[in-house]
Amino acid sequence: MSPASGTVDPRAPRFGQGVTAALALGGVVLQEPVLIYILTALLVVAVASRWRIDPYRFLWLRVRRFVDPPTTTESALPHRFARVVGAMFTSVASICLVVAGVTGIGSLALVGYGLIGIVGVLAALGAFANFCLGCRMYRQVSLFKGWKLLTTPAEDIEEMARL
Rank of each mutant, 00 (worst) to 15 (best):
M1D: 04
P3C: 07
A4R: 15
A4G: 13
D9T: 07
P10R: 03
A12T: 03
F15C: 02
F15V: 03
Q17H: 13
Q17A: 15
Q17D: 13
G18C: 06
V19N: 05
A21S: 05
A22N: 05
L23M: 13
L23S: 05
G26Q: 03
G27Y: 03
G27I: 03
V28P: 01
V29D: 08
L30S: 15
Q31E: 14
Q31I: 12
E32C: 10
E32P: 07
P33Y: 05
V34I: 15
L35E: 01
Y37A: 09
I38A: 13
I38T: 12
A41F: 09
L42R: 09
L42I: 14
L43W: 02
V44M: 12
V45F: 06
V45D: 04
A46V: 07
A46G: 11
V47L: 14
S49T: 15
S49F: 12
S49I: 10
R50A: 13
R50P: 04
W51N: 08
D54I: 08
D54Y: 07
P55W: 06
P55F: 07
Y56W: 10
R57M: 09
F58M: 12
L61S: 15
L61Y: 11
R62P: 07
V63P: 07
V63N: 08
R65L: 13
F66T: 13
V67K: 08
D68I: 10
D68V: 13
P69R: 05
P70R: 01
P70V: 04
T71M: 08
T71A: 15
E74I: 09
S75K: 14
A76H: 04
L77I: 12
P78A: 05
P78V: 04
P78H: 05
R80I: 06
F81D: 02
F81L: 05
A82C: 07
R83Y: 05
V84G: 00
V84L: 15
V84S: 05
V85D: 08
F89E: 04
S91Y: 05
A93M: 03
S94C: 10
S94M: 08
S94D: 06
C96W: 00
G101C: 12
G101W: 10
G101F: 11
T103S: 15
T103R: 14
G104Q: 12
I105W: 09
G106Y: 10
G106D: 15
G106K: 12
L108Q: 02
L108G: 00
A109E: 02
A109H: 02
V111C: 03
G112Y: 00
G112N: 01
G112K: 00
Y113S: 04
G114N: 11
G114C: 11
G114I: 10
G117Y: 09
G117M: 10
I118A: 06
V119F: 03
V121Y: 04
L122P: 01
A123D: 02
L125F: 09
G126A: 01
G126H: 00
G126C: 01
G126F: 00
F128S: 03
F128L: 08
A129D: 07
C132Y: 00
L133W: 03
L133T: 04
L133Q: 02
G134A: 11
C135P: 01
R136Y: 09
Q140C: 11
V141S: 12
V141H: 13
K145F: 06
G146K: 02
G146R: 04
W147L: 15
L150G: 07
T151C: 11
T152D: 06
I157R: 15
I157W: 13
E158Y: 10
E158K: 14
E159T: 14
A161W: 13
A161Y: 13
